[in-house]
Design a binder for these strands. Structure first.
Length: 425
RNA sequence: GCGGUCGUGGUGAAGUGGUUAACACAUCAGAUUGUGGCUCUGACACUCGAGGGUUCGAUUCCCUUCGAUCGCCCCA
């Protein structure tokens, strides 16, 4: 039988787990600074939640979702991204009625996409994301972009750049869409089969096609930027000016089309040229989604957010490694020694000291000392038959190698008095 | 979904169509019978990923399969 972990999943072992805790803590701190509060939504939702939000024609929905029927014959999908669930929860819990806007949420946790794994891409991966709902303003857009940049800077990530574009408002998008249809329809037979469906459902995505990317029709296709309404155009210009005022470097890329259908107005990505990312250069993607809350049955409510893959982040982040160590290791000999050792260990632990003890009766002191070293221990407490008989243990400081006899009732006091004395180096 | 590369002990990693499968690290034991980090000695691969084929003989060659990994695509 095959008990190996599933393709595209990873086990995070304690050493790696420490790094995760560090990164998570940095993220929570920055979220707090920007006044985003944590929201935790379910890891699975009704399939329709994602179909509706991201668009049925998107690659993510059409071929990457973990979808199955549960025992009640409901179609369930493991979340492939975070925004849909947050917006669903926002509407369901009537958060739009809260007096304070924007409503600012952050989340982190696992997402699931059925893809072929490679460097920087897993089937179960973790995202950190934020969503700010209830306000449409260039200053909020830029606040969100600035937060993303702050996160990458705080983690010491270099070689990042911000790419932005605008998709315009409803009207801009509608006239652009019409232009695209007029442009492609006469030549539809020259395009791939996917593009034929896209023409019907979402012509914008034709520009995204990998099969037909070199077709001259692509280069001559109508551009988003030429179909912006005056309002959309000035909104975007304001965003750019605000980015300038914060000295955030960015480039405008009019071909930036995000993979999910819910975006409008400002869209952006943070990309990195760091080679440790392999073929994946996109660290972070986000944008505005003004129609989404209404899609889910809420009132007309604007929103903006971003998300990034934490695994990718960790591949390029500078992570401070904290040296961990034990306050005491209890070396034991014999059954009586082990029994007394357990008493002492428990007593010290209750008092907040980190303690490990030897549980194997046959283990030599020599090999127990190896455990002492591996655990970066401060004090060794030796508990054998002699100590049991004398009701006093031997305590040895690993750093200066001095050893002395300490009565059972004085162990805690002795350790606490001497702990501050040395560095754990 | 499509391609490339790889799969030998706990780990890293040599190697050959023939049977004792190097080496290093780690681990355990002993020298040192209750005091480590050095040294020395010893122990440690009964599916060389799995299945099939070629062969007198396969870990080595061929096919299949599974897994890992990288890339295309797409995204985070």
């Amino acid at each position: 039988m095959n008990y190996q972990k599933q393709k595209g999943t990873v086990d995070i072992l304690p050493e790696e787990g420490k790094k995760w805790q560090y990164v998570e803590q940095v993220l929570r701190t920055i979220a707090g600074v920007y006044n985003f509060k944590e929201i935790r939504t379910p890891m699975f939702e009704a399939t329709e939640v994602f179909n509706r939000a991201a668009g049925e024609t998107s690659d993510m929905v059409s071929k990457e979702m973990y979808t199955f029927n549960d025992k009640g014959e409901r179609s369930i999908t493991l979340r492939p991204e975070g925004t849909a669930g947050v917006v669903r929860a926002y509407v369901e819990n009537k958060q739009f009625a809260l007096p304070e806007t924007p409503n600012k949420y952050y989340y982190m946790g696992p997402m699931f996409r059925y893809e072929r794994p490679q460097k920087g891409r897993q089937r179960q991966f973790n995202q950190f994301g934020v969503e700010a709902l209830g306000v449409e303003s260039p200053t909020l857009d830029v606040e969100v972009i600035a937060m993303a940049v702050t996160i990458f800077e705080s983690l010491g990530i270099k070689d990042v750049s911000v790419v932005i574009n605008t998709l315009g408002d409803q009207m801009s998008r509608a006239s652009h869409k019409e232009a695209l249809i007029n442009h492609f329809k006469p030549h539809i037979d020259e395009l791939c089969s996917d593009c034929k469906t896209r023409l019907e459902k979402n012509p914008l995505r034709i520009l995204d096609c990998k099969v037909d990317r070199n077709n001259p029709l692509m280069a001559s296709a109508p551009k988003t930027i030429d179909y912006l309404t005056d309002e959309a155009k000035s909104y975007f210009e304001e965003v750019c000016e605000l980015l300038d005022s914060l000295e955030i470097k960015y480039v405008v890329d009019s071909n930036l089309v995000r993979g999910l259908d819910y975006y409008s107005h400002t869209v952006f990505e943070v990309i990195s040229s760091d080679e440790r990312l392999g073929a994946q250069s996109t660290l972070c993607g986000g944008g505005r989604y003004n129609g989404l809350v209404k899609e889910f049955g809420g009132p007309e409510t604007p929103g903006i957010g971003f998300a990034f893959g934490m695994e990718r982040l960790m591949m390029v982040a500078d992570i401070e490694e904290e040296v961990e160590g034990l306050d005491a290791y209890i070396m034991t000999a014999g059954k009586d020694g082990a029994n007394l050792g357990l008493q002492i260990a428990t007593m010290l632990r209750v008092n907040g000291l980190s303690v490990e003890m030897n549980h194997q009766e046959t283990r030599s002191f020599k090999s127990q000392f190896k455990s002492v070293d591996r655990n970066n221990t401060h004090f060794v407490i030796i508990v054998g038959q002699d100590e049991v008989d004398k009701e006093a243990v031997q305590i040895k400081c690993v750093h200066d190698k001095e050893q002395q006899e300490v009565k059972l009732e004085n162990i805690l006091e002795f350790i606490e008095n001497h702990l501050g004395g040395h560095d754990h180096e």
